[in-house]
Simulated scan of single mutants.
Amino acid sequence: MLRRALAGAPRQVHHLLWAALLTIGAIGQAAMAEPALEKTEIRYQGWAGQVTFTELAEDLGYLAPLKLKWVGNTISGPQDIQTVVTGDVDIGGAFYGAIIKLIAARAPIRAVVGYYGSDDNTYNGYFVKEDSPIKTARDLIGRKVAVNSLGAHLEFVLREYLARNGLSPGEAKQVTLVAIPPVAGEQALRQGSVDVTTLSGVLRDKALERGGLRRLFADTDLFGNFAGGSYVLREKFIKDNPSTSRKLVEGISRAIAWAQATPPQEVRARFERIIAERKRNEDASPIKYWKSTGVAARGGVIGDAEVQVWIDWLVKDELLKPDQLRPSDIYTNELNFYRPGKAAEAQ
């Protein structure tokens, strides 16, 4: 019918009409491929002087038409995911141990994409002064160790270090943990307020440049290269906003993959620009020390093993009952752009 209508039309008109029809068809296909989003604004907390992968995803254009709403900065992973549980934000991230404990307490959240971890360039180290008599785990009995937050990554790694080196639970309790903001950890150690401090990233590199410190151990000494934590969403959020949830997590996973594959100097340059443009009156100098994502799997795909190690630890510490939780109770990869079975590698 269309061909008959065009039969007598000039060739130029013929071509224009066909082009218009093809364009309309492409728009229709795109509309079918991109379901309407139930929610277009995502509330989140940031970190001072850092760029989260959620923020990077927005800057790369992977979240559009989603918009982020920054509600302030967090000081720790446990605090961040607690605000997810209370509904004050839509997405937050923390160490797997903190996530598992919340889920064990019946918090309705689910880990959706791994966002941080440790490798040869990005790790958490436990440092003493160079002339410190502390040489072994047993030397920590009766000593003070600075961590950023109680019940988070640094505490669990320390307790694993003590256990692997033969300290009994009673002896381990004699090692005192002191919650100190990371930026104050080096000063607390040098002034003698604590005997050991934990340092990572720019804080670690700057402290080592100043000299006088010695590494006692690092989380990679215990676990090798590993993913340490994940972003979480409320289960109700996922149920009520399936398209928005997929768009959000796919965008974040793509941003992680971009940072994994892009030369570090390009990642740093983008981070510096993002910080400058958001105008939060913060120090961007730590960005020049950024070296890697620390995330082992492409796009933060989560695996059973990286979750099971923390479930086992909590069982051993009698915070969980044997067989109380399985990795499948903790996470899902169904929203990840690189989820198993999805042909995303060519994109």
Score class of each variant (00 low, 15 high):
Arg143Cys: 12
Thr136Pro: 03
Leu325Gly: 13
Tyr62Ala: 14
Glu318Met: 04
Leu66Val: 11
Pro327Lys: 05
Asn124Tyr: 14
Ser230Asn: 08
Gly77Asp: 14
Gly228Ala: 11
Leu37Val: 07
His15Trp: 15
Glu186Phe: 09
Ser253Asn: 07
Asp240Ser: 01
Arg278Pro: 01
Val196Met: 03
Ala227Ser: 15
Arg210Thr: 12
Glu282Asp: 13
Lys135Tyr: 10
Gly192Gln: 02
Lys239Thr: 14
Val267Trp: 04
Ala172Gly: 09
Arg204Val: 04
Leu150Glu: 05
Ile75Gln: 13
Gly77His: 11
Glu58Val: 04
Pro264Ile: 04
Gly294Asn: 01
Phe127Tyr: 11
Ala343Thr: 01
Leu314Tyr: 00
Arg234Cys: 01
Thr176His: 13
Val128Arg: 00
Arg143Leu: 05
Val128Phe: 02
Ala48Ser: 10
Phe226Trp: 10
Leu17Met: 10
Gln12His: 15
Gln187Ala: 08
Lys173Arg: 12
Thr197Tyr: 02
Arg138Phe: 13
Ala218Trp: 02
Ala105Ile: 06
Asn225Thr: 11
Val202Pro: 12
Pro340Ser: 08
Gln265Asn: 14
Ile27Glu: 10
Leu150Ser: 07
Gly341Pro: 05
Leu6Pro: 05
Pro10Gln: 13
Glu250Pro: 02
Ile99Lys: 09
Tyr331Ile: 04
Glu55Met: 10
Ile27Asn: 06
Ala137His: 15
Ala179Cys: 03
Ile27Pro: 06
Leu320His: 03
Leu233His: 02
Tyr115Phe: 02
Val194Leu: 00
Ser245Thr: 01
Phe217Ala: 11
Gly8Leu: 04
Leu37Met: 15
Asp329Asn: 13
Ala9Asn: 04
Phe223Gln: 07
Val113Tyr: 10
Thr293Asn: 03
Gln324Trp: 07
Arg190Ser: 02
Tyr44Thr: 14
Gly294Ser: 03
Gly341Ala: 08
Gly77Phe: 15
Arg3Ala: 13
Asn121Thr: 10
Pro327Asp: 14
Gly97Trp: 13
Ala297Gly: 04
Val71Cys: 08
Leu6Met: 09
Trp313Glu: 05
Glu209Ala: 14
Val315Cys: 02
Leu189His: 05
Ala111Met: 01
Trp258Ser: 03
Tyr116Arg: 01
Glu38Asn: 06
Ala57Cys: 00
Asp195Pro: 00
Val175Lys: 00
Arg164Thr: 04
Ser193Phe: 11
Tyr161Ser: 05
Val309Gln: 10
Ile24Asn: 08
Ile42Val: 15
Tyr123Lys: 08
Ala94Trp: 05
Ser292Ala: 11
Thr293Glu: 11
Gly125Met: 02
Lys236Ser: 09
Trp310Gly: 00
Tyr338Gly: 02
Val71Gln: 15
Asp221Pro: 07
